[in-house]
Simulated assay, not measured.
Amino acid sequence: MTAGRARTYWLVGASSGIGAALVDRLVAGGHRVVISARRQAVLDERAARDPERILALAADVTDLDSLARAWDGMLDRWGMPDSVILNAGDYEPMGLADFDPTLFERLMRVNFLGAVNGIQVVKDGFIRRGAGEIVLTASVAGYRGLPYSSPYGASKAAMINLAESLRPEFAREGVAIRVINPGFVRTALTDKNDFPMPGRIEPEDAARRIAAGLAGRGFEILAPRGFGYVMKVLRLLPYRMYFAITRRMLREPGQ
């Protein structure tokens, strides 16, 4: 991470995958991190390794009151953070043969409405202070619809749209809202995929790239950039060309 003043982060979704790797990276960069996830025991285990720099407060993004209690606990002990990273996420691939509205509801509750709950909890404090940063972990899967990822992709597209919509008003109040758009990162979630994942990187590599992006001020942080740029190009294609590409991604029925 580039040199600069030490900051205080609240990282929600910190117990595994990209979140856990990012905690390590931020702490190594000299920052303090309030870590939140649903399992307090897992958080306590991580905090015990760096008790001066990590504060563990359990929270469930699908429960607004749970997030509010964690926020109040942080304010009581460490004060208001400089940056809030809403990283909690869920993923499950789904093909048309397994179409399931309950899966859409589950992923939207965690990925999208979880971010909405997080914004609700922190926005008034940041606006009163006239400073702060809210960072949403979305995905390049939110750029355009991809086969077998409609519940996940829809939730991530909603997050990107949310950040884009709110950014001008937040900026007027002195508050930044930004998005992290990872590509394929090796985690327990992407291990569910049974297809080739181009450009897949390790969580530590993603965390390094994200931490470098957090040190800047850009709206979007890509991790990695290469695959992100490929997805940006696909986003520009007319539908006829785009659907010709995505049809090639389909598996034979029964596979």
Results as ranks from 00 to 15, higher is better:
Val140Lys: 02
Ala21Cys: 12
Arg32Val: 00
Arg251Phe: 10
Arg209Tyr: 01
Ile35Glu: 02
Asn111Ile: 12
Glu92Gly: 08
Ala171Ser: 11
Met159Ile: 13
Leu103Glu: 04
Ser15Met: 06
Asp76Thr: 13
Arg217Thr: 14
Val185His: 13
Gly142Val: 01
Arg225Gln: 13
Met80Glu: 15
Pro253Val: 06
Glu169Tyr: 11
Met159Gly: 02
Leu55Arg: 04
Val140Ile: 14
Gly19Ile: 05
Ser83Val: 14
Ala58Glu: 05
Asp98Lys: 03
Gly218His: 14
Val121Ser: 05
Leu103Asp: 05
Pro238Val: 09
Val140Arg: 07
Phe99Met: 15
Gly19Ser: 09
Leu103Trp: 01
Thr8Phe: 10
Asp191Thr: 01
Arg106Cys: 06
Arg235Tyr: 04
Glu92Lys: 12
Val42Thr: 10
Gly213Cys: 12
Ala131Ile: 13
Val122Tyr: 14
Pro238Gln: 04
Gly130Ala: 05
Ala48Met: 06
Ile180Asp: 11
Trp71Ile: 12
Leu57Cys: 09
Trp71Gly: 02
Ser150Met: 10
Asp194Met: 11
Gly114Asp: 04
Gln255Ala: 14
Ile201Lys: 06
Phe195Asn: 13
Gly132Gln: 10
Ile85Leu: 15
Gly132Asp: 07
Leu107Phe: 09
Lys156Trp: 11
Val233Asp: 07
Pro182Tyr: 01
Leu189Thr: 10
Pro182Met: 06
Asn193Trp: 04
Met1Cys: 15
Val34His: 12
Phe184Gly: 01
Leu113Phe: 15
Val140Phe: 03
Tyr242Asp: 07
Asp191Gly: 11
Leu86Ser: 05
Glu45Gly: 00
Arg144Leu: 06
Phe195Ser: 14
Ser15Leu: 02
Leu75His: 03
Gly153Cys: 06
Val140Ala: 07
Gly17Ala: 11
Tyr148Ile: 11
Asp50Ala: 12
Lys123Val: 09
Val27Arg: 03
Gln40Arg: 08
Ala176Gln: 15
Arg39Thr: 03
Pro51Ser: 08
Leu55Ile: 02
Phe219Lys: 09
Arg7Ser: 04
Lys123Trp: 05
Pro196Cys: 08
Asn181Pro: 00
Met108Trp: 10
Leu11Arg: 05
Arg186Leu: 14
Arg77Glu: 14
Arg53Glu: 09
Leu86Pro: 10
Leu86Met: 13
Tyr242Glu: 04
Tyr242Ile: 06
His31Ile: 09
Ala158Trp: 07
Asn161Gly: 14
Gly254Glu: 02
Thr62Pro: 10
Ser155Leu: 11
Gly216Tyr: 03
Leu86Thr: 10
Pro81Asn: 01
Gly79Gln: 00
Glu173Asp: 15
Gly228Asn: 05
Gly254Trp: 03
Thr187Arg: 14
Ile245Ser: 06
Ser83Phe: 10
Phe99Ala: 15
Arg217Ile: 02
Asp124Trp: 02
Pro93Met: 08
Ala6Glu: 13
Leu67Phe: 00
Leu136Phe: 14
Glu45Asp: 07
Met108Glu: 13
Lys156Val: 13
Gly125Leu: 08
Glu252Trp: 08
Asn181Gly: 04
Arg109Met: 14
Val179Ser: 08
Ala223Thr: 03
Gly130Trp: 06
Pro101Met: 01
Glu169Trp: 07
Ala163Lys: 10
Arg225Ser: 12
Lys156Glu: 11
Ala244Ser: 15
Met231Ala: 13
Arg46Asp: 03
Tyr148Pro: 12
